[in-house]
């Protein structure tokens, strides 16, 4: 190896090590947020009680043990898994569509979930083999996955051009919004309120089952995303370049949309359409970590989880004794962070 090559290798290695450090700091921030989220609430659990309760649940008095294990932990962990899923879906959608405004919602998946949830709330259909309490998330999931399936059909049979995908996704958003408005029109006041609450997003209805399902979905999809990090990175050099080196971009788009649809469908079906995270989480990660998807993919998942965890903490801490729906707070948490990073980047020489 020549001195010159060592120089590039060394300089690039330095950048990569700095990025790994940033990933480590994001993980620490996430753990801190998780701790604050577990502590927040009227029960007044201290950090010492939380740590003791996590490792030795029997040492806590029964009331605190139930609050920690049946209320706080599921709420806090669903924030992490939903945030991570939306962050991952967001970064992959933005890259594959080469569109910084793209998010999991661009594809219409969450609007479809909203429609499914709306039908469950207003029409209350009885589904075979589905308990009554699970009809809403199942309907949301089925509609969201159905929308993902439709997009895949469009990619496969109409052509995989990114403009086609975005156009179809936006058409699906308008269609689902129109049908949801029709549901508003026929619903009673209670139904309308339930739909509105669902669309704002709410973490407090999740239990351990929901946590495991969303986490399992994220962990099942993540290896496939990591397997494509080189392809997704070189795609940031442009679609023409990717095609010129023999990459089947249409096929890659198919896989990424499949992953993104599954992640979004499972993320929103239990907690509602929590907006913003899939859009801004990846942008914050990009400002901190650059475009190399080896760093950007885990970074976006971490940023998504961090924003939602911080929003979850604030939703309980801002007004004593009340829980603000978390969807209201995600933008309030994320926008200042994004602005600070943008200003910091502008000031950099």
């Amino acid at each position: 190896m020549t001195d010159a090559s060592a120089s590039l290798h060394a300089r690039f290695g330095h950048i990569q090590r700095r990025r790994v450090l940033v990933l480590g700091l994001l993980t620490l921030a996430l753990l801190l947020c998780l701790g604050l989220d577990l502590m927040a609430g009227p029960a007044g659990l201290t950090a010492e009680q939380i740590l003791r309760g996590l490792f030795d649940p029997e040492s806590l008095e029964l009331r605190h043990r139930i609050i920690l294990w049946q209320v706080r932990l599921p709420d806090a962990l669903i924030a992490l898994s939903v945030g991570a899923a939306l962050g991952l879906a967001g970064v992959e959608t933005q890259t594959i569509l080469d569109n910084p405004l793209a998010s999991p919602f661009t594809l219409g998946v969450s609007s479809s979930a909203m429609l499914g949830a709306g039908i469950a709330i207003v029409l209350a259909p009885a589904l075979p083999f589905v308990p009554e309490t699970a009809v809403l998330p199942v309907m949301a999931l089925v509609f969201a996955l159905g929308c993902g399936g439709l997009i895949l059909l469009v990619v496969q049979f109409v052509g995989g051009a990114r403009e086609t995908v975005v156009l179809f996704g936006i058409a699906m958003v308008f269609l689902c919004n129109a049908l949801t408005s029709a549901l508003h029109y026929i619903a009673d006041a209670d139904g309308i309120q339930q739909i509105v609450f669902w669309t704002i997003g709410n973490l407090t209805k999740a239990g351990w089952t929901e946590v495991w399902i969303v986490t399992a979905c994220f962990l099942a999809v993540l290896p496939f995303s990591l397997r494509h990090v080189w392809l997704m990175t070189l795609l940031r050099g442009g679609e023409a370049h990717a095609r010129s080196v023999g990459i089947d971009v249409a096929r890659l788009r198919l896989w990424v949309i499949l992953r993104s649809s599954i992640l979004t469908a499972f993320a929103v079906c239990f907690v509602g359409t929590i907006a913003f995270i899939g859009l801004v989480g990846p942008h914050i990660a990009r400002l901190l970590l650059g475009e190399d998807h080896r760093m950007l993919v885990p970074g976006s998942a971490l940023c998504g989880a961090l924003i939602l965890s911080a929003a979850s903490f604030l939703s309980k801490a801002l007004i004593s004794g009340a829980i603000i729906p978390v969807g209201i707070l995600t933008a309030l948490v994320g926008v200042p962070v994004l602005l600070a990073l943008l200003i910091g980047q502008r000031r950099r020489p």
């Binding site: 590039l8 690039f12 990175t233 070189l234 940031r236 050099g237 370049h241 650059g290 475009e291 190399d292």
Partner: peptide
């Protein structure tokens, strides 16, 4: 494309 990707990263990932 004029993205935030570094030329070295583009070469490397390719």
């Amino acid at each position: 494309s004029p993205s935030a990707l570094l030329p070295t990263e583009l070469m490397w990932s390719t």
